Simulated assay, not measured.
Amino acid sequence: MSLEPTPARIAHALREQIITGELAMGSKLNEREIAERLEVSRIPVREALPILESEGFITSQPRRGAVVHILTVTDAMEVFDLRRQLEPMASAFAARRAQAGADVGPMLAALQSAHGGSISDAQSDAPPSTRNSDLHEEIIALADHALLRRVTKLMSGRVRWLFRLTPQRDTAAMWVEHREIVDAIVAGQADVAELLTAAHVERGRIESMPLLEARLPSEAPATKVRRRRATPAAPAPAPAAES
């Protein structure tokens, strides 16, 4: 008998449905419907929603409840701003750890997967954007920096979301950039890995932003507030008859 899924597992399932577009931006999340679809009770669903809200995947709106966040151009720019600062740092840390003898096997396996080689059954259905995200996260894992990992965890979901919105960028040229970054990390060349990653992220910004600007609103649409119907005024009492 399997245990009931935890709120974290439910959050993971909903997060993936949001990233893939199965749950559309702006759509309302109904606890009862989610519970029925995932075959769980409503309690863990209710506990999973704050996890997604803390990650920026949903927002709570008055009278509507939980709604899938509508990504904006500003959101995308902010993700690239953070990536530009954090990912080069992660690559440098990863290179120093590789030089010290850390296991680079998982990162090399993720690189092979991102390039379409040696894909396991679990990865066979994953699109290139997902496998590319996996590689970036393996580099962060290799960096083994606790605070960096906590900060990037909040960012990684948004990165995966944006990658899925720009499949045009899954090209051979990007895979070459990945190979150069990984080669520098394996060789323990921290400065080179840092510079290559910075250039990779910046090139991604230049190529992705026009695509995202064509798909995303510049700002989130204003929340519609229902107006309460005015209660008809009670008729004035008839004047008393004179005696």
Rank of each mutant, 00 (worst) to 15 (best):
S129Y: 08
I10F: 00
M1S: 10
D144C: 10
H200D: 09
G26I: 03
S208P: 02
M25L: 05
L86Y: 06
G21I: 00
G204Y: 03
A184G: 08
I58N: 01
V192R: 15
V186Q: 05
A76Y: 02
G117P: 02
A190G: 09
R37M: 01
L195T: 15
A230M: 12
G157P: 10
L52M: 04
L142N: 07
P217Q: 06
G116N: 08
E39M: 13
S2T: 12
P237H: 02
S2G: 05
R9D: 11
A230R: 15
S60P: 00
I18Y: 04
E36L: 14
R96D: 12
T72L: 05
G65R: 08
S156E: 07
F80C: 02
E31F: 06
I139D: 00
V186C: 02
R64H: 12
R63K: 14
A238E: 15
P221K: 03
P232C: 06
L216Y: 07
R64N: 10
E55P: 03
M1F: 05
V73Y: 01
P127Y: 06
A98N: 05
A66H: 06
F93H: 13
V151H: 10
A222S: 11
K224N: 06
L135F: 13
L23S: 06
A240E: 13
T59K: 07
I43K: 12
P221D: 04
D103A: 11
L49D: 00
S41L: 09
A146P: 14
P217G: 03
W161R: 13
V176H: 08
N132E: 14
P62T: 06
Q61L: 15
A190Q: 05
A110N: 04
T166R: 03
E4V: 11
D125S: 13
L14Y: 03
L29H: 00
P235M: 12
K153V: 02
P221F: 04
T223P: 08
I34E: 00
E207G: 07
E55H: 15
G157M: 08
A35H: 06
W161N: 14
P167D: 07
L86E: 03
A100Q: 02
A222G: 10
A13Q: 11
R131E: 04
E47V: 01
M25F: 10
A233F: 08
D134K: 13
L211W: 01
R164A: 14
E16P: 10
V79I: 08
E177R: 09
R226P: 00
E22P: 01
W175S: 13
I51L: 15
L196I: 04
E78G: 00
R32L: 13
T72N: 11
F163G: 09
A126E: 10
V73H: 07
T152V: 11
E138S: 11
E4M: 12
D144T: 07
R32G: 11
E31W: 02
R42I: 12
D134S: 13
R96F: 07
A240Q: 13
A48T: 02
A230V: 15
A172R: 09
M1K: 08
L142I: 04
G157Y: 04
G56D: 05
G188W: 06
S129G: 10
T74N: 13
D75C: 01
A187P: 00
R84L: 08
G101N: 04
R158Y: 03
K224H: 12
L108I: 04
